[in-house]
Amino acid sequence: MVSITEGKPLEHTLEQLSTTREVTILSCNTCAHYCGTGGRLAMDHLAFHLNNNGVTVVGKELVTKVCIQEQLRGCNHTKTIVLMACSSGLISAKEAWPDAVIVPTNSTLGIGSYDPDTGSATLLFPFPGHETSRGARFPSLNTEAIR
């Protein structure tokens, strides 16, 4: 089972960073990677767009599982962290770095399965508010967050 995430629009992230000049991107390389909302490629895309929009990405950290808190040890970060992970990863990071400002780029829709053969994840057990997305596949065609 994997957590199913969907990227928020880039504009939303930029709004959250309107008073921030420098950030570190922290990207999860497991579930979020499967959904196209984390991993190295999505992180590089986001860094490109943040840099182009006046936010300097001074560091990029790829973590296998942000939800395993010990894996966050050794990550270098700025005061503001742009987090590409699920909601559990967010709480894990907030607990690990209580003084940091953490800006999540993803919404977590629920739990599902991943098929490496097709490279897609399917939402099986949606969280409240996302019931209409049951059965949807991710990454969705809406790649706005990393466009």
Partner: peptide, 19 residues
């Protein structure tokens, strides 16, 4: 299976989103 969570260094396994 009860939901999604994380492994905290101080609190152990923690459930954050329930199904």
């Amino acid at each position: 299976t009860v939901g999604l969570g994380y492994l905290s260094e101080s609190r152990g396994a923690v459930l954050t989103n329930s199904i």
